[in-house]
Design a protein around this nucleic acid. Sequence first.
DNA 1: AACGCGGGGGC
DNA 2: GCCCCAGCGTT
Length: 354
Amino acid sequence: MTDVSTPNNKPATHATGLSNPDAAPASTVRARVNEWFLSNGRDLPWRRPEATAWGVLVSEIMLQQTPVVRVQPVWEEWMERWPTPHDLAAEPAGEVLRAWGRLGYPRRALRLHACAHAIATEHDGVVPNDLPTLLSLPGVGEYTAAAVACFAYRIPATVVDTNIRRVIGRIFHAKALPGPTMTRAQYRAAQALMPAHPNEAGEAADAHYSPAEVAEANTWNAASMELGALVCTARDARCGECPVESVCAWVAAGKPAADYVPRGQAWHGTDRQVRGRVMAVLRESDGPVPHEVMATRDGAERAASAATESRLRSALAELALLTADDAQRASCVRGLVEDGLAVLTSGGEVSLPG
DNA sequence: AACGCGGGGGC
DNA sequence: GCCCCAGCGTT
């Protein structure tokens, strides 16, 4: 079968990126997973009907590499404080970084701030609803663009995140884990599982969807992701709770182990660790911090001893405790300034950007 | 394709 | 300790 326009209610084929001829019918998998989702999906605030497209965008950026449980409280604060892109755009970057807190990868906060500015000034304050425009926003890549189109605007774009890659890999390819980065084959496999096939660009992807197919596609995007988050997890898949256990290729194959060894991210002693501690000090400080405190161990130690506010003192102590030498500390401060996460004052101090 | 980029919780 | 998490931008 080479005709990708055929409704894919039969086993997917090599031509569509799915190579297992015995794979379960896509329509069966979709129906079971979607039904499971209706009663088992979490009631997350950005999924509620009153969530705005802006709220969805904020949630998606925050959720890039950060788990739901840690995002949710911060997202609630942000929505109350900055309910529209205009509100966030009016804020200084430093305030945004402070409010980002410990979500990690603070560059995402800067990009979200830049997003808000772009939306406010170039898009009349309205979050774009088409993939090319979404992709043009800072910090919005293929996944996030599709997620915003789908979850905010009910446009059935093909959403592919790490959960969906794993779920599809197991159900249709008997693969335990999908590998660290998405391949085009995996993207095409996900595309082939949509009720109708979006065109390659994904634009106007709903042109030939019936209303029922639109609903099915949008639910599938959320449901397959949720199945990966709650049941078909990377470790300890709870197959007994899975609605498609009986048709899963990975289960049928005896749950073979992953064929690659994940390479853990180095952490101890890395620039990332140093940068994180420096940013933590900046977040806890009311104003600029002497460069020597950030760039030398002795400076951090003395500042920690002198600090009276407990959270600041703790952040300074954690910075001082790092094994990093002064050259690395200084280099990390330079890097943070280059990245726009910090600025140097004329008085030789380091502070959050204005 | 590979790398840099935070941080915390589960095992 | 190790691994994972609703990725993105750069090289």
